[in-house]
Design a protein around this nucleic acid. Sequence first.
DNA 1: TCGACTTATCTGACATCTCAGTTACTGTTT
DNA 2: AAACAGTAACTGAGATGTCAGATAAGTCGA
Lengths: 164, 164
Amino acid sequence: MDGDGEVGSARQAAEDGLVVTFGRLLGVANRLEYLVGRALEQECGISHLMYEVLLILGRAGGPGLSMSAIGRAQVLTTGGVTRLIDRMEAAGLVERAEDPGDRRGRLVRLTPLGEQTAVRATRLHRDNLRRLLADRLPAEHWDRFAEDVRVLSRAVEKEVPRLR
Amino acid sequence: MDGDGEVGSARQAAEDGLVVTFGRLLGVANRLEYLVGRALEQECGISHLMYEVLLILGRAGGPGLSMSAIGRAQVLTTGGVTRLIDRMEAAGLVERAEDPGDRRGRLVRLTPLGEQTAVRATRLHRDNLRRLLADRLPAEHWDRFAEDVRVLSRAVEKEVPRLR
DNA sequence: TCGACTTATCTGACATCTCAGTTACTGTTT
DNA sequence: AAACAGTAACTGAGATGTCAGATAAGTCGA
């Protein structure tokens, strides 16, 4: 099929490496999310997804973000965002306000409790990430690794369609 | 708050970088899983998780793997494995057999359809991963990136407790 | 051999997502 | 301004995971 023995099998090995590396990448992501998520849950009473939302709302500041902007930032359908924000609102972390410029939309912003929780969670989260992620790589690899992740992040975001 | 202006904010930035990089890492993993998962779903009728299981069963060969070994390889509780294998068995991809050495356990192995599907899915999967993942990084970065992922994978696996 | 742990899998109850369909509003076109 | 397609958020139904408890079977010391 391939025609050439050695070259073919070398390429085969390289491409299986691609499949395996991707499997490992997902495994690392899932396990890290499990570990830091459990810590956030226990210490701050929030899931990791909620933490990410607190973070982007904090960075956004001002009048807040729309539901769909949150859905685009994380990988969530609008239905998922509605329910996530329902729970965060019930927990007192965020609040919904009317969007004066578009009466269909709602603007989500942090409550004081949400801000406090974000600060407290970030301290914990950083320590965990340093121990679990950054300290595991040779120091001279870390910067390039972070840069590669940034490049991938930009590229892949463009490929994902908006979820309904 | 921190007490020292410039140094404090530089450290702040570096540590926020850790939090942000981790957020991006999860984003990349989720979006890639969404993209390749949708392709596998449409072309081969299996979820990405099912594909990973087909892959490790194929590599294991012989009499197959126990449910708990599958749960450890992926990040799943035993309850999750039971239901995943239920669906895969219903789809004709795998079969459960008695474990002669331990009457509590079941050994899961590929059916011929499962093997065929794994081969077919791998072709598709490789192409997608090359396009979405490997081709996005400068070629000279890829090998080191893959190596870093391998190192992280080994380290993080040890930290995750066995899920019940 | 007996009893106390431990382990492997399964199950019911629940959590949280997606999907598809609804409602309400916006912007555009005629 | 009336019709239309497009967008924002919400909702019921279904998919798929976790958690905790049940059951059966293996292990090991007294």
